Simulated scan of single mutants.
Amino acid sequence: MNQKPSPSPPDRHRMQHPSLFVPFASGLNPLLPQATRQMWYWIDETRLAPGEAGRRQIRRTRPDLFAGRVYPDADLELLVLACHWLAVNFRLDDQLDEGPGGRQAEVCRAAIDELSAVLGGQLLDCDTQTPLSCAYADVWRRTATGRPEGWCRAFAQDLCSFLESYYVETVHRTTGHRPGIEEYLAHRRATVGMGWLMDLAELTLPDYLPDEVRGGAAMQELRNAAAEHVGLVNDVFSLQREVALGYYHNAVVVVHETLACDLQEALQQVSKMVADTARRFVAAESALPAALTAQGVDRPTRRLAYDYAKKFRPMMRGNHDWHFEVERHRTDDLPTDGTAPDYAHDLLESSDYQPLSQGTRRAEAEEEAS
C-alpha cells in the first residue's frame, strides 16, 4: 500500500498555538507530595525505570502530577493507585509509541497479550517476565481486591481496549493505513486511556454504580465526549513531537491529510473540535437526569450518577493544565539521527533484572520526590 508522506515538523516559533475551550475549574490534590514519594518507591521496586533514561522520562512526564490534577478529591490510597497505573502505562506508551516495539507487529502483539493475560488473572513468575507485566500484576491485584465483580470487569475491559489500540496502530504503521477523521475519533477514545481512568474516578464515590447505569447510553455519551476532549487536547500539545517522530495518529495530522490543508489550519480545526466536544459534554451532562429517569433509575442511584458525572470535569481540565506543566511533549530530547530515544526500548527488550534493596529503593524514592 502506498504511504502518504509525513508532514514536515512544524516550527513552534511560527505556528500559533490556539487557545483551547475547557470551561471547568482547575484543581490539585493536596496529598500529591505523599503520593509522589510512594510512586517513586514503587517504580524502583518494580524496575519500571531500569536506567537513568527511563527515570528522566518519568520526571519529564510527571504521572503523579497528572493523577493529582485529574483526581483532586481522591484519598491517598486511590491517588497512589492512580499514580501507579499512570506510571506503568506511560512507560508502556514510551515503548510502543516511540520505540521499535510499536513498529513490529509481533513484538507489540506479544506485549499486549501478556498484559491482557494479567488482567484475566494469569499468574506470573516475575523472575522471567518483563517489569511491565510484573508491575501490571501488582497494581491490578491491589485494584481488584475487595471490589465488585461488575466494576472490575468494566475496568479490565476498558484497560484491554486501551492496550489493544496499540496493536491497531502498529498494524496501521506496518500496512500504511491512514485513518480518516471519524475513524480516528472512535479510535482515539480508546488510545487516550480515559475509559479506565474514569472507572478509577468511580472509586471516589460512596458506593458503586449499577452496571446498567455505568454502561448505559446516557453515561456512555458523557464518557465518550470527555475522552474525545482529552485526546484532542493531547493531540494539540503533542503535535510537534509526534510529527518529528513520524507518528501520524494525531488529530491535527489526520485533519491536515483529510482536508488537504496546512498544519496551522488543521490546528485551528482541531481547536474547534475541542470546543465542540466540551459543549457536547455539557449538553450530555444536562440531559443525564431525564435519561436516567426514563431508564427507571431510582433517586439515590441517580444522585450517585450525577456525582460521578461531575468527576469528569476536573479530569478534562486537569489534563489540559498538566500539558502546560510537563516536558513530556517537547522535542529537545529526541536523537538527531532519527533513532528512538534510549528510554523507548528499555523494558520490552530485556527481562533479566535484579530488584533493588529496600534501603536503596527508599533512598531513591525520597531523592526523586524532593
Rank of each mutant, 00 (worst) to 15 (best):
L115W: 02
D93P: 02
D138L: 07
L115A: 06
L96N: 01
R109H: 06
S133E: 09
L123Q: 15
R147L: 03
P148I: 00
A135W: 02
A144S: 13
L92A: 12
L79N: 00
T145D: 14
E106R: 12
R91A: 11
P148Y: 00
A105S: 09
Y71S: 14
H84Y: 03
T128G: 10
L115Q: 08
R109Y: 00
W85N: 06
A110G: 04
D93C: 07
R103T: 02
L96D: 03
A135G: 08
V80P: 01
A117E: 07
G99W: 06
H84S: 02
A111T: 12
A135V: 07
A110H: 09
E106V: 13
T143C: 00
L115P: 00
C108A: 14
D73V: 15
V107L: 11
A137S: 12
D138G: 11
D94S: 11
T130I: 10
A82G: 15
L78S: 00
D75E: 13
T143I: 03
D73H: 13
A117W: 03
T130G: 12
A110F: 09
A110V: 06
I112D: 05
Q104Y: 09
D97W: 00
A111Y: 03
E114T: 06
F90T: 01
Q129G: 10
V107W: 08
D94T: 12
E77R: 04
L81Q: 08
V139F: 00
L79K: 01
P131W: 02
I112Y: 05
V118A: 05
W85K: 02
E106D: 14
T130Y: 06
P100Q: 08
T130Q: 10
L115S: 03
L86R: 04
H84C: 04
A135P: 03
I112A: 08
N89A: 11
G102C: 10
S133P: 05
L92T: 07
V80Y: 02
P100H: 08
L119P: 04
T145K: 14
E98A: 12
V107K: 10
A144T: 14
W140R: 00
S133R: 07
G99L: 07
L81T: 14
R141Y: 04
E106M: 09
Y71C: 14
R109K: 12
P131I: 08
C126E: 14
G102S: 15
V80I: 13
A82N: 15
G101T: 00
Y71W: 04
L92E: 05
A137G: 15
L124H: 10
G121T: 12
I112E: 05
D94G: 09
A111P: 00
R91G: 10
E77A: 15
A105P: 14
V139W: 00
E106I: 12
D73K: 08
A117T: 04
C83N: 11
D138W: 02
T128D: 10
R103A: 07
C134T: 03
A105D: 05
L81C: 10
G146Y: 13
Q95P: 11
R147P: 03
D73N: 14
A111I: 15
D127I: 11
D125N: 11
R142A: 01
R147M: 03
L119A: 14
L119T: 10
F90E: 09
A144L: 04
L86C: 09
Q129H: 15
G121A: 12
D125I: 00
P100E: 05
Q122E: 15
E106F: 09
A137Y: 04
C126M: 11
Y136R: 00
C126I: 13
D94I: 11
P131F: 03
